[in-house]
């Protein structure tokens, strides 16, 4: 299977996918760590794909999304953005709205706690 086929399969068969450096338990980059940390804290069930473990996926996801950086978040097959966008959407409540609209389960109280801590 090509890297692009693998990516298509992963984002089709998982509601939330995070392409990141490292794993959700052990991120290897501050930006990946921040996004994984938000998802972990909000109790979102997601698949983490460690791009450091596969050079073809690492380049493939950049080409597929037309986006030059990692991390990259996909929800229901749709590209949401990288660290800056996910952070902004978390703080504005747009991420909650996206999860609500897409039927992705998360802990609303935890999301509110993140916003309270960054107000």
């Amino acid at each position: 299977m090509t890297a692009i086929d693998q990516i298509k399969q992963d984002i089709a068969s998982n509601d939330v996918v995070l392409y990141m450096k490292g794993t959700k338990e052990m991120p290897q980059c501050g930006f990946s760590s921040r996004v994984a940390g938000v998802l972990n804290f909000m109790g979102v069930s997601y698949k983490d794909v460690n791009v450091l473990a596969d050079a073809d996926i690492r380049q493939g996801i950049k080409d597929f999304s037309d986006w030059p950086t990692i991390p990259q978040l996909y929800v229901k097959g749709e590209f949401v953005g990288g660290c800056d966008i996910v952070t902004e959407m978390t703080l504005s409540g747009e991420l909650d709205q996206l999860f609500d609209a897409k039927g992705v389960a998360y802990n609303k109280d935890a999301a509110d706690q993140i916003r309270a801590a960054n107000a």
């Binding site: 037309d66 986006w67 030059p68 590209f79 953005g81 966008i85 902004e88």
Partner: peptide, 15 residues
């Protein structure tokens, strides 16, 4: 949109 803003800057900076 947020994505479009980021993409516009990526394009302006160039690969």
């Amino acid at each position: 949109s947020r994505l479009a803003r980021h993409r516009a800057i990526h394009a302006a900076l160039g690969p």
